[in-house]
Design a protein around this nucleic acid. Structure first.
Length: 106
DNA sequence: GCAGTGACTAGTA
DNA sequence: ATACTAGCCACTG
């Protein structure tokens, strides 16, 4: 069932600006769940399609889409990122040094 | 309740 | 550079 932590994860993901990406570990850390990157995957997988959460802006630490085994969502994610100006390298990997979101501390 | 699995990561070889 | 391991914890059978 939907846990409160999930809502917290979604809130963090919603803060990722357009044209930027964040890693699972980074989201986990910002959501107050350090070292629990796997939970981010669960939360996003359980996310309904109509959700305002930009789940496609979350990628793994290697700068790749972690859902590649799933041809459908993997393709959807890559398409959504491309529509925001996030283009992968020739390797098919995203340059984190260039696209990774750096949250402003306030 | 235990064992396996997973949209992960960091470390080691 | 790739491959394997351990750690993390919720979900499933």
């Amino acid at each position: 069932m939907t846990s409160v932590d999930y809502q917290r994860i979604y809130d963090v993901v919603k803060r990722i600006p357009e044209g930027r990406v964040a890693t699972y570990g980074q989201v986990a850390l910002l959501a107050g769940l350090p070292g629990q990157a796997r939970r981010i995957g669960y939360a996003l997988h359980a996310l309904p399609d109509e959700s305002p959460v930009p789940w496609h802006r979350v990628i793994n630490a290697k700068g790749e889409i972690s859902i590649l085994p799933d041809p459908f969502f993997g393709d959807v994610q890559r398409m959504l990122l491309e529509s925001e100006g996030v283009i992968p390298d020739s390797n098919g990997k995203y340059a984190l040094s260039r696209y990774q979101w750096k949250p402003e501390h306030r």
